[in-house]
């Protein structure tokens, strides 16, 4: 694809999401899809954070911790101090990024399974902290958070007050889609930048990278901070939509899901997390009809997908990409 077609394709995709989907929802009257799609957009932002840590070769099952942290930071600032939600959104991200630098400095020295396990534990720590700290209001959580207020510049309303809107769901949907677009545009840019190349060298061999002068300690902390920033922003947005946050809002299961989203989409593709989140979330929702067999069917499909496409869904559509020759050749051997 040339540069122009790429830009055109992304613009068309964004236009479909921003205009086409609301029109379609209005026509069919299924307004509940707004919430579903908003969730997919936000979860894919959080999963994109996990993808960044995969990019430096770390398995991150701790993203739920930062999502929870972001949600609480935003909720506390809005309810306790009356800060505008739109200001708390980047603040929540920055708070998480700062916290992740402190946490990351020691734990990023771990690799492989060790990092995976400690990050899993981190999610549990966040939940227990939220239960134990006085400011987070324990198990009762923080509820009835006001909807985001308006932003005006020189008397001109840029974003209207959400509580005055006829359809706040649509507004949240649009905000989420825009955030997602921003996030993945950044991710795409990152993966093609110098720092992205360096991150890939980390993924392949840290010792080698460091021996040719890559500052690995610095790079991995930066990557981890970016990852947590996305987690925090996503979590804050979630708290605003549900107008509440509890210690159990993001648990170990969510952290594992964020990781699964990345795996399912394909780790070597920037848009993997987006596709993976969409498929997992919608697949789960579609199976709701099957009642108590929901989890059974869902997990069986996951296992089957893993057996057929262990390198992610996107490895199917882009056969020219590097890395796909390997399984094809191995399949030949097996037959």
């Amino acid at each position: 694809m040339t540069r122009t077609t790429k830009i055109a394709a992304s613009a068309a995709f964004l236009l479909t999401l921003l205009v086409g989907v609301p029109v379609l929802i209005n026509l069919t009257g299924r307004t509940d899809f707004y919430y579903t799609l908003t969730s997919v957009a936000l979860l894919s932002i959080i999963s994109a954070g996990v993808w960044i840590t995969f990019y430096i070769g770390r398995i991150n099952i701790g993203q739920g911790a930062y999502a929870l942290m972001g949600g609480y930071v935003s909720a506390i600032l809005v309810t306790g101090y009356g800060v505008s939600f739109w200001l708390t959104l980047p603040l929540a991200g920055l708070f998480c990024a700062a916290a992740s630098v402190l946490i990351g400095l020691p734990i990023l020295r771990l690799r492989g399974v060790y990092f995976a396990m400690i990050s899993l534990v981190l999610t549990e720590v966040a939940r227990l902290l939220a239960l134990a700290l006085p400011i987070t209001n324990g198990a009762k959580g923080i509820v009835s958070i006001p909807l985001p207020g308006e932003i005006s510049l020189f008397g001109l309303t840029i974003i209207p007050d959400f509580s005055t809107l006829a359809n706040p769901r649509l507004a949240f949907y649009i905000v989420a889609v825009l955030l997602m677009a921003l996030c993945f545009a950044g991710l795409y840019r990152l993966s093609r930048s110098r720092i992205g190349q360096l991150c890939q060298s980390l993924q392949q061999n840290e010792e080698l990278a460091s021996s040719i002068g890559v500052n690995i300690a610095y790079l991995r902390v930066i990557a981890y901070a970016m990852s947590s920033f996305l987690g925090g922003v996503g979590g804050a947005m979630f708290a605003a939509i549900s107008q509440s946050i509890y210690p159990s809002s993001f648990t170990v299961a969510d952290s594992v899901n964020f990781m699964l989203n990345c795996f399912l989409g394909g780790l070597s593709y920037v848009f993997g997390p987006m596709l993976g989140t969409f498929v997992l979330y919608f697949g789960w929702d579609l199976l709701f009809e099957t009642g108590r067999f929901q989890l059974l069917i869902f997990s069986s499909v996951l296992i089957a997908l893993m057996l057929v496409l262990p390198n992610g869904l996107l490895s199917l559509s882009l056969p020219k990409r590097k890395g796909n020759g390997v399984p094809a050749r191995k399949k030949g051997v097996e037959a």
């Binding site: 398995i59 990781m259 989890l295 262990p310 390198n311 399949k331």
Partner: peptide, 25 residues
């Protein structure tokens, strides 16, 4: 099967998590 076919070793974690869900259900 998955170890043989996948490019990255970590893919087994998705499988392990899926098996955990499966056994749970």
């Amino acid at each position: 099967t998955v170890i043989r076919r996948s490019v990255r070793e970590e893919s087994t974690m998705l499988l392990a998590a899926a098996i955990a869900f499966f056994l749970d259900s």
